[in-house]
Write a protein that binds this DNA or RNA. Structure first.
Lengths: 203, 203
DNA sequence: GTCATAACGGTTCTCCAGTTCCATTAAGCA
DNA sequence: TGCTTAATGGAACTGGAGAACCGTTATGAC
């Protein structure tokens, strides 16, 4: 029976799924600042002790939730044009941030990342995955000669999202489809002008 | 002696200044999540009761701090070119966010804004002030015919900052001068292409 | 099926953030 | 200068988050 056997099957996995789901619900309702582990435990119909032992703190729980979220990838669309592809990406981000459930959830995990190194690491990994998933549409645009060679594909993807997150977190302006479309158009214009190439001096 | 006289002079003002300064110090060190009002009080050499009574919660204290910060405006530079102006703006934001004191402070107040409506209101007002201060350099570029008429000047300013805040809060990439320069260049390119005009359809 | 133990869960205890209460200080006005 | 009371400050009180303890469940190996 070997001492020290890990038992991830059955109950353990079920508890994890229940707790992560409950944590997401609680984050949507109360935000990270008012996340109560006892509340999460009762939502998940699980003992308080279990939550404290396995995840320790609210930040640790969010870090695990982010790891879980990173594994569920959403499919990328593929139209024939860079602007269309990036607009699809921008609108996906816009829908997510404006969604009554996903929006508060993302705000909560972003807040958690600023409070805890593990949560920060998990958040950065989450976005690294998402950005890498969409970078190919920029590389395809390079192959179609829509964009100059040597462009930083991932930076273009980040440029599409940045204005939307800025609205969500900084300026407080609404994250609507107009903003999404403008973000995509701006990124395309800047990319074509060579703003995201390594030896950038297009002025 | 008129019942209900407000007494903002002398001691009250001194207490406010001391507490706001101490709050900023505490935010820099521990972040908003671990902001302890008792700690703020002892730093300010002020009674705990006073802090709880006047500001109530950590979020309320941050909201007042932001109101105070909004009143201290930093002067805007003015070169002759749009790219130079926006680069100066981007580098100012970059220096602020990368600063060992200002960076953590801004992260903390942004976090506070996601947790409390009053803090959010104060943060949005703070940025509205800063953006309005810099918008004229875009309008001057329009007058110099560097940019098309009908452009949203404030949106251009926001576009300069957005990638830097995205790095700070989302991707975790370093907020360095390269990023600042690229942000300015991208904003100029997008603006010249008409991405920030009202009837945007430049594709 | 049987056993050892990893993992869960209820109860109790502890500690501290936040509140309440009242005494003390000093701002503002005559 | 003296009076009223706004505002501060110390001390005791309270509620709930999180830790500690130990009994219970059920997983995984044989």
């Amino acid at each position: 029976m070997t001492v020290g056997t890990i038992r991830p099957g059955g109950r353990t996995a079920r508890v994890r799924a229940a707790v992560l789901g409950a944590a997401a619900d609680a984050l949507v309702e109360h935000g990270f600042a008012h996340l109560d582990l006892a509340d999460v435990a009762s939502r998940a119909e699980v003992g308080r002790t279990t939550v404290y032992r396995r995840w320790g703190t609210a930040a640790g729980l969010v870090a695990d939730l982010l790891t879980d979220m990173a594994e569920q990838s959403s499919p990328r669309v593929e139209t024939g044009s860079l602007l269309e592809d990036l607009r699809a990406n921008a609108r996906l981000v816009q829908r997510t941030l404006a969604d009554p459930r996903q929006g508060p959830l993302f705000r909560a995990v972003i807040v958690a990342a600023t409070c805890d190194p593990r949560a920060a690491e998990a958040l950065h990994r989450f976005y690294a995955v998402r950005i890498a998933e969409w970078a190919p549409c920029v590389e395809q645009a390079v192959q179609r000669a829509e964009l100059p060679v040597g462009i930083d594909a991932e930076e273009v993807i980040r440029a599409v999202s940045a204005p939307l997150y800025y609205r969500l977190l900084i300026s407080g302006d609404s994250v609507d489809t107009d903003a999404a479309d403008r973000a995509a158009e701006a990124a395309v214009a800047a990319a074509k002008a060579g703003a995201y190439t390594a030896d950038s001096d297009p002025a």
